[in-house]
């Protein structure tokens, strides 16, 4: 029952997030609104990264790969460090 509540609450919060993001605009990062803004005012605008992966869906793909790899490493180590009662048996 608790799992069902958690899944439902997650979906509802996600939907609320979608609604908010659509309502409030582009959600720029503070690099744009603060760091790059002050750098541009000082005449030092950022230049393209040496390995520019910000092309189409490539960056999205790399973020997903990074998240999956990080999640896997973290989960694998977590299971080794904090085994469940079933694993201990």
């Amino acid at each position: 029952m608790a799992k069902v509540v958690i899944v439902c609450a997650s979906i509802m919060l996600l939907a609320a997030g979608l609604y908010l993001s659509a309502a409030e605009g582009d959600w720029p990062g503070v690099d744009e609104t603060v760091v790059e803004k002050f750098a541009e005012e000082a005449g030092r605008p950022p230049r393209e990264p040496y390995m520019n992966t910000d092309k189409g869906d490539l960056l999205l793909f790399l973020f997903l790969v990074a998240g999956a790899a990080g999640g896997f490493v973290s989960g694998y180590c977590f299971r080794e460090l904090f085994p469940s009662a079933r694993d201990k048996k």
């Binding site: 919060l13 997030g17 990062g29 690099d31 750098a39 030092r44 950022p46 230049r47 999205l60």
Partner: peptide, 22 residues
């Protein structure tokens, strides 16, 4: 639950690191 929401929350993938060339 919080982590699930944060990961799934739609957002631009940019933040505070100082960018190249600044």
């Amino acid at each position: 639950l919080g982590l699930v929401v944060l990961i799934a929350w739609p957002a631009s993938a940019r933040a505070m690191h100082i960018s190249e060339g600044i």
